[in-house]
Structure formats: structure tokens, C-alpha cells
């Protein structure tokens, strides 16, 4: 409970949490407000926002309701952010933990692989994966997860390196605990806080990566995502700029919310760093 109190003491963290809850509320309520398919034609194309009460945020170049796409897009963005982050963090934790705990040649091999991934610009790698495996939403999410694991892996490894020689780990070994139990039962819970905080960065980057893919029209065209809408708006950017700007603001708010929550978690988990 001390943790919750520490979290709510910081105004930016509270604002971030509020914004994130708004985005989640949009995702949850999309079906109630917009029972129709968001990708179905709804009216005349390129209606400006506030011009027609049926379309509070206007329509895009093919006459689809932008407000509906924003609400449904929240689902996709959160899905991508959430699932891709889980994939990246799990791969990262397993590789980082094994690498940091065993050290020696295991560490050398795993870290060289990690570096190979890190030296490739991750957006290029993502483009290759999508080009090879196709661009339905599942593939895109898995591909984003696969390009994002090196940073959590390095972070986990660094924590393990400092924790593995601590006396409580040695005590566990003298009790006869098996390696897997030591790694995941004893060391990992102590190594987790910075990794959880870093997960918020991974989540924000995942959402941006999908938007960038969609902007290049390489994401799944059959789902209503914010990135797709920005990509569509590209054609009419100079006159009907709102088609790209509205989903752009949605992405900005979501990424900001996730970062603020991450920063808030960091401050709450490391109370000693505050006040500096």
C-alpha cells in the first residue's frame, strides 16, 4: 500500500494514469457507441469535424466515420502495445536472466546474438519480417515483439550480474535449490522493478512502430488502426489535414500516458531517487 501512496504523490503520474484509463475506456466502449463496422462506408467523404452532428470528428477520404475508427483504433493500439510488450519482455527476461546467471560462454553467445539484433535498426528488421511473413495484425504484433526484446534482455542481465553473487542467492544454493528455482524464484523478483518500468518504454515504442508501418501502408489494412488512418490521410494532407491530425493526437496522448505511468512507477519503486 505504501507503493500505491508513493505513486499517487506525483501529479504527472496521476495525469498519465488518467489519460491511460481514458484510452482504455475508449477501447472498451467502442462497441456501444459505434455498433456498426468502423470500416464500413458511413456518409460523404471528407466531411470536416463538427460540420455534421452524425460525424463529430468528420469522415475520411472514403467516407468512413473517423470517430468510430479512433475508438476502435484504441483497441488495436492497446492490443499491439500490450501483446508486443509481453512478448518482448518475456524473451528479454529469459535471455537476460540465463545470460546473467550463468555468465561465461553462455553469456558470451547470448550477448553476441543480442548485439546482432541491436545493431540492425529495428524498424528495418520489422519491415523485413512483415515483407516475408505478410502483414496481418498477428504477424505485425509478433514482429514488433521480436524486434523489441534486446533492451529488456540487457537490463535483466545487468540486474542479474549484481544480484547473483548476493548472499541470499548463495544461501539458496547451500539449501540445495535448483538453478531454475534460483533464477526465477529468488533472483527474478528482485530484478523485476526496473524491467517493469522499462516495459512502458517498450509499449510506447511498439505503438509508434505499428503507426509507422501503417503510415507506409504495410500494416494490416483490414483493421481500424490509428496508423492506417494517418496513412490514408497522407493523400489529402495539405487540405483535409484533420484526417491525419486526429489519429496523430490520439497516438501522442496514448504514448504520453504510457510514458508518464512508467515514470511514475519508476519513482514509486525507487523512492530514494526522488527529491534529487
Amino acid at each position: 500500500m505504501a507503493f500505491v501512496r508513493a505513486y499517487f504523490r506525483s501529479p504527472p503520474a496521476v495525469i498519465g494514469l488518467f489519460l491511460l484509463l481514458c484510452v482504455i475506456a475508449m477501447a472498451v466502449s467502442a462497441g456501444w457507441f459505434f455498433p456498426r463496422d468502423p470500416l464500413a462506408l458511413a456518409g460523404r467523404p471528407l466531411v470536416w469535424p463538427f460540420a455534421n452532428p452524425r460525424f463529430p470528428l468528420g469522415t475520411d477520404n472514403s467516407g468512413r466515420d473517423i470517430a468510430a475508427q479512433i475508438f476502435y483504433g484504441a483497441r488495436i493500439s492497446l492490443l499491439i502495445g500490450g501483446v508486443a510488450t509481453v512478448i518482448a519482455v518475456i524473451i528479454g527476461i529469459v535471455i537476460g536472466a540465463v545470460s546473467g546467471y550463468y555468465g561465461g560462454w553462455v553469456d558470451n553467445v547470448l550477448m553476441r546474438i543480442t548485439e546482432a539484433f541491436q545493431t540492425l535498426p529495428n524498424f528495418l528488421l520489422l519491415l523485413v519480417l512483415v515483407a516475408v511473413f505478410g502483414s496481418n495484425i498477428t504477424t505485425v504484433i509478433i514482429a514488433i515483439g521480436i524486434v523489441s526484446w534486446p533492451a529488456p534482455a540487457r537490463l535483466t542481465r545487468a540486474e542479474f550480474l549484481s544480484l547473483r553473487n548476493r548472499e541470499f542467492v548463495q544461501a539458496g544454493r547451500t539449501l540445495g535449490l535448483k538453478d531454475m528455482k534460483l533464477i526465477f524464484g529468488e533472483i527474478l523478483p528482485n530484478a523485476l522493478p526496473p524491467v517493469i518500468v522499462y516495459a512502458s518504454v517498450v509499449m510506447a515504442v511498439s505503438i509508434l512502430l505499428e503507426s509507422a508501418l501503417a503510415f507506409l501502408r504495410l500494416s494490416d489494412p483490414n483493421v481500424a488502426s490509428w496508423g492506417n488512418l494517418i496513412g490514408l490521410g497522407r493523400d489529402v494532407l495539405r487540405v483535409q489535414w484533420y484526417v491525419s491530425a486526429i489519429p496523430g493526437i490520439a497516438i501522442l496522448v496514448t504514448v504520453l500516458a504510457v510514458s508518464l505511468v512508467g515514470q511514475g512507477l519508476n519513482d514509486a519503486l525507487n523512492p530514494r531517487l526522488k527529491g534529487r
Binding site: 548472499e167 541470499f168 548463495q170 544461501a171 539458496g172 539449501l175 540445495g176
Partner: peptide, 27 residues
């Protein structure tokens, strides 16, 4: 069995005291 030097570093801070003691017999 071994008893360690540092009373702060030798106990896993995320486990309850009873669990720490019970861990060995459970294993």
C-alpha cells in the same frame, strides 16, 4: 549448512521470514 555474514544481504527481501526458513525442508 552455512550462516552468512551480512544480515541484510543474506535474506531475500521479497520472501516472508517463515518461507525463508521453510524453503530448505520444502526443497
Amino acid at each position: 549448512q552455512m550462516v552468512f555474514q551480512d544480515p541484510f544481504a543474506s535474506l531475500n527481501p521479497r520472501r516472508k521470514a517463515g518461507e525463508l526458513v521453510a524453503q530448505g525442508p520444502i526443497v
